[in-house]
Write a protein that binds this DNA or RNA. Structure first.
Lengths: 139, 139
DNA sequence: CATAACTGTAACCAGTTTAGTTACGATTAA
DNA sequence: TTAATCGTAACTAAACTGGTTACAGTTATG
């Protein structure tokens, strides 16, 4: 369970919301399709709401809808909305600062990490939620 | 300690080897610069050797050297040599197969995962170990 | 106004992963 | 023969993720 599946689950959740249109979807229902616990879904939706991708309503007839149209939600927005792990971590302990290589390694790696993250975001920006739905429906 | 730092450490290690040239470097020495345990380094070198990036020698005068020149080692090779985590994980439990969305979600996400991985590799292919050294030396 | 049905969130638990560590066998040079 | 080194297995500790329970707050409805 160590690897983070929030992005994957988020795409799944957003797809369900998109198909539901204006109808408010309950966390219980989503959890049923994703096959997890409603609280896990609500936690995730909380992040997506902060990012302006969905709107949740509390109360008896509560539930969640998309905050904008599927064609206007880019997967890069979803990626940025979540605490997805970096592709690689820096070493937990600081390198030996007496070693000229160790001294400059962290800064370099941090920059590389950011560059990779940018690549990922560029790739994900190419897809909207609408594309996901079309892809899934034709399967 | 959940996030995988093997790639970061590998770049560090390879840089040290590159600077050492033909001289065999001992795992103890590398561990000193990276600030970790020699066994961690040897485990990593074992992977890099399998990938043909380094050559290790056992015995009294043992140690490790690069298997080819720094300018011929692309960071994408390093990435592929190691069990780096995927950017995102699929959900551990299978989605509800009775739900038309759940049924097709895993296949789609898996494809997306592969595409992202290709993006990362393309980005890393742009850099060689030589580039890393130059970048670190001018810092 | 009381009730039922939701969301939001805190708190805790269990499983998995990573890196650190110890230990030891195998290999090699001197 | 000895000392130094790699290779690798086994165990441990710490961190993280997701699952679960619990409950407060909100809202529609009769």
């Amino acid at each position: 369970m160590a690897a983070n599946s929030q992005f994957a689950v988020a795409i799944h959740v957003l797809t369900i919301l998109a198909k539901a249109g204006d109808e408010r979807v309950k966390s219980d229902y989503v959890a049923g399709s994703v096959n997890t616990n409603p609280v896990v879904i609500r936690r995730l939706l909380s992040n997506l709401q902060e990012a302006g991708l969905v709107v949740s309503h509390v109360g008896a007839t509560g539930g969640t809808t998309l905050a904008k149209q599927a064609k206007d939600i880019r997967l890069s927005e979803v990626y940025k909305a979540l605490p997805c792990g970096e592709v690689f971590a820096l070493h937990a302990k600081e390198a030996n600062q007496d070693c000229p290589i160790g001294r400059n390694m962290a800064a370099f790696l941090c920059g590389l990490q950011k560059e990779i993250d940018k690549s990922i975001e560029e790739k994900l920006r190419q897809y909207t939620l609408r594309d996901v739905i079309e892809h899934i429906e034709e399967a």
